[in-house]
Design a binder for these strands. Structure first.
Lengths: 115, 115
DNA sequence: CGCGTACATTGCCAATTGGTTATAGAATCA
DNA sequence: TGATTCTATAACCAATTGGCAATGTACGCG
């Protein structure tokens, strides 16, 4: 249940997120399932191109397919995004620490600014 | 000051994060600056390969270089990571909403579980 | 059945990527 | 100065990527 952060997984997640078309697709799917045909209109590319992007997203686990008669709906999968967030948050701790240090510095009275 | 989420920027940030060697470099830099020589030992690759990775990280803004005599220290830059986190968090809102709905459902008395 | 619709797959191409070795440049030290 | 160290750049290569057009496949409907 807890997100795995092995290299293979993160490779695929971040690679999937590194393309603007795929990010647009994800943002679209955020508001509900969509077919390749719908996504194609939105992307301004050919249908095979969009199918390929969907495959990349699926292999990264960011999306799953669900068949409904002749239509296949793409549904966003949030778990991998959480994995990505967990990785990034390893650094955000530092942001917090840095802000804490800054705050401490400002409260310590000495206000020699180093721009 | 507020993170920009334009496509170009996110393309480069996520692409930079999509390589395990670069992620290892970032994790190393989390605990302080390092030279290419140090990073090379850590990466198990040739020095030019590591220099290339550093360049990718720099172009994504994730790292900056600071010369100290004959050594050049790489220093982690947190702003782009925040940009990445902001993008990802657009979806985490959904996670929260989903959890809220679940919670509401559980509290609504009906406890028919659908595994 | 035969047709249309929705989608995947294939084959092709140019560009990018991640690695290498070899070379060049910059700064320190003897 | 010349030798050494640290790093960048160049040249090359195989593999991957992102796009296209063409073709194949699966499903529903008349």
């Amino acid at each position: 249940m807890e997100p795995e952060l092995d290299d293979e997984t993160l490779d695929r997640i971040f690679a999937a997120l590194s393309d603007r078309t795929r990010r647009r697709i994800l943002l679209r799917l955020r508001s509900g399932p969509a077919t390749v045909t719908e996504l194609t209109a939105l992307a301004g590319l050919t249908q095979p191109a969009v199918s390929k992007h969907c495959k990349v997203l699926e292999e990264a686990g960011l999306v799953r397919a669900e068949r409904d008669a002749q239509r296949i709906h793409r549904i966003i999968e949030l778990a991998p995004l959480i994995r990505a967030a967990v990785f990034v948050s390893q650094f955000e701790v530092q942001v917090d620490a840095r802000l804490d240090r800054l705050e401490a510095h400002l409260q310590s009275g000495t206000d020699k600014e180093r721009p």
